[in-house]
Design a protein around this nucleic acid. Sequence first.
DNA 1: CTGTGACTAGAAGTCCGTA
DNA 2: CTACGGACTTCTAGTCACA
Lengths: 84, 84
Amino acid sequence: MYSRAVKLSSFFGLAVRRHRQLLRLSQEELAARAVIDRTYISGVERGVRNPTLDVMERIAASLGVGLDVVFATARELSAERENE
Amino acid sequence: MYSRAVKLSSFFGLAVRRHRQLLRLSQEELAARAVIDRTYISGVERGVRNPTLDVMERIAASLGVGLDVVFATARELSAERENE
DNA sequence: CTGTGACTAGAAGTCCGTA
DNA sequence: CTACGGACTTCTAGTCACA
């Protein structure tokens, strides 16, 4: 509760991972769609990269959704962690 | 209608501008809150910049919302343009 | 299939000033 | 207050070898 302006940055990668797994895609397949290196996707999902809007857009598009959907998922994931 | 994976990237800046104006903040004030250069905010709002997740997060937080909200606004703005 | 460290060209982001 | 430019520093984008 009381989740004003939670840092979604760390959850963006997890949201990407969730969407990717829902589509039964491997990191390699997603990377191919987004025209991004496989290891880069790995870094994004783990939160060790700080991607630009352009890259994020390409990833979201390759997941068949918009960034608003990805960030909505990110918030859901962050909300789950709040019950602790 | 039927807006699958619209490019929200170009509307992110406009969404930021809308949120900022709703708060009656100047670009300078927003920049100060987000600890970002004044001229950079200007560039982001005009869509001539390609900000990183970190910066976008700080901007959204300084607007009192999360990135999911900003991108939801971005989608609304893009939807308005679709009626043409 | 995925995680990780290291590397470099080029873009992100800062800071100055002008209109 | 904001748009825009140039010069500068910091960091990301993109890639590879290896585990």
